[in-house]
Amino acid sequence: MRTKQSNFWARLNFWSFFWPLLAMLYFFLPMYGTLDFSLRMKKGVISLLAYQTVLADPKFLESFRYSAIMGVITVVISVLLFVPTVYWVYLRLPQARPVMEIISILPFIIPVIVYVFGLIRTFSGPPFQLTLTPFKTDILITAGYIILSMPFMFRAIDVGMRAIDVRSLTEAGQSLGANWVQILFNIIFPNLRIAILSGALICFATVIGELILGDFLVRPALGPYMVLVGRDRAYEPAALAIISYALTWACLGLIQFFSRGGNTQQQLTGR
């Protein structure tokens, strides 16, 4: 053990420190600049005034509440849509997996702006007119969020499915008399808990920070609010950026936290 440790330190040189340090500076320096700037709203004093102003703004609370609700709805629908779909592909259509992989990365390939214009053109006229009322537009924007967060949700569920022996678990359930609904809710969903949670948190973070869909469909989402504030104020956008960062990091922290608990219940296939 000691030899291994001494070998590790012996291998380290100037460049071993230089590159990680440079990467950290590249990432944290702008963040530090933003944080520092957000704390200087009161001249010559370090204060949380910008944060107080932002949090006291009813429009912020409204937009945050709207995006959070949309995020939760997106997560619930995504889980109910993708878990059974991926499960079915694993079980019955394994040959369709490459097709699903390609479909799942389409949101990365097609620019969101193109996608939004496509949505508006398709759903602003009959037979599916979904832009006339706020409720209908919310349906449209939720569908849009589901598509945008699909790569994250699909990947998370896919990784989760790979970690369990889907076929054997399903067949074991069937041989014990369980139907498809019981198998899904008693066996598959609980064993994908961590994967679903990871996907859900990334999905939620994506919706919270999304700008283009909310802006073009004229809904009171957090993304457009942040841009609006940034147009005519200086310190509040910086505070908002830090709050947004904090939300994302909180989501990542939660993923890490919940991922740790799953080891004792992992299936040992014995293969």
Binding site: S168, A172, G173, L176, N186, I187, Q265, G270
Partner: peptide, 17 residues
């Protein structure tokens, strides 16, 4: 699920949860 046939698998297939 309608046959009432018990099955034991090579991979055990116990429900980990």
């Amino acid at each position: 699920n309608k046959r009432n046939v018990g099955m034991v698998f090579q991979s055990y297939a116990l429900f980990p949860n």
